[in-house]
Write a protein that binds this DNA or RNA. Structure first.
Length: 279
DNA sequence: CAAGTTACCTGACGGC
DNA sequence: TGCCGTCAGGTAACTT
């Protein structure tokens, strides 16, 4: 579900509900996420502490308490975090529930349990956070994320450009949907070797990635199956999909039939006319 | 060291 | 009706 835009929408949606609130109790399911949930650790580090901030880095959410402790959370494929009234029935895959001091409860729901929550104890939170993101590529909107950087890094990579831009060590936050959509909008074939793009093409692609992500955030993200923001509203960027999931349909630009292929094990869609394999 | 494969999970859907 | 295979927004530990 969640790529950068969806995580950003969840982050912005949660902030007004939780900043400054105190966590009164934490309840965890007995199931493990991608890593085990450290419920004991969360109780001792986060309980009775006030929430200082919630931010996003790549597809991760970072919760910080005023005592310095923190939590790095990932939503995996099916994760979501929402705000609910305490006492309302918890859903089947609610794995972590943080009870706040305003009768609200923040709940982490994740059907497939590919998500994760990493605790950052107060005494070395910043060191652990830095280590956690040490190998993560720049944010697409960051100043140090430039066409020159991508062009130079891609020079030694023979892999498909789509796989390259989905590599979180290269650039953060781009998943399968927005990789497909951005490459279509940039008229670049997803299977082209990353090293074959000129710096000019990287400039165009980066501009379009940014535009596409920004647009998706403004739309409240993409709702496939059941994505909703913190208030329970779905996004509507899926209305703007031009290529993702559209194999067999006519290209909106040239009417040629959209093709589906598999790259890096992920469904990849392209228009054979608009996205030429060689330039 | 780059790049491909596998594992981690549940649920929806289509074919039979 | 149900059983089976396939597929799904992600990531990291493996292997090659």
């Amino acid at each position: 579900m969640p790529e950068l835009p969806e995580v950003e929408v969840i982050c912005q949606g949660l902030q007004p509900h939780i900043i400054g609130k105190r966590i009164r109790n934490i309840h965890c399911s007995d199931k493990r996420l991608r890593v085990p949930i450290d419920c004991e650790g969360m109780l001792s580090e986060l309980c009775n502490q006030q929430i200082h901030s919630l931010t996003r880095r790549a597809k991760y959410l970072i919760l910080k308490m005023k005592n310095g402790a923190g939590l790095i959370m990932h939503l995996g494929m099916t994760g979501n975090i929402g705000i609910f009234n305490q006492g309302t029935v918890r859903k089947k895959h609610d794995h972590i529930c943080w009870l706040l001091d305003n009768d609200k409860e923040m709940r982490f729901n994740d059907t497939r349990r590919f998500g994760a929550a990493h605790l950052l104890p107060a005494k070395n939170a910043q060191i652990l956070e830095n280590a956690f993101f040490a190998a993560t590529g720049p944010e697409p909107f960051a100043r140090n994320c430039t066409a020159g950087y991508l062009h130079k890094l891609a020079a030694k990579r023979s892999q498909a450009v789509k796989n390259f831009i989905m590599d979180s060590h290269v650039i953060a936050g781009i998943g399968n949907i927005y990789a497909n959509e951005s490459l279509f909008r940039a008229a670049i074939h997803p299977a082209r070797p990353a090293s074959s793009l000129s710096e000019k093409e990287w400039r165009r692609l980066l501009t379009i990635i940014r535009k596409t992500l920004r647009h998706a955030i403004q739309c409240g993200g993409s709702t496939i199956s059941d994505f909703v923001n913190a208030s329970g509203d779905g996004g509507y960027f899926q209305m703007n999909f031009q290529i993702y999931g559209k194999n067999g349909e006519a290209c909106a630009v040239c009417e040629r039939t959209i093709q589906r292929t598999v790259l890096g094990g992920r469904a990849s869609f392209f228009c054979p006319t608009c996205q030429r394999i060689s330039d």
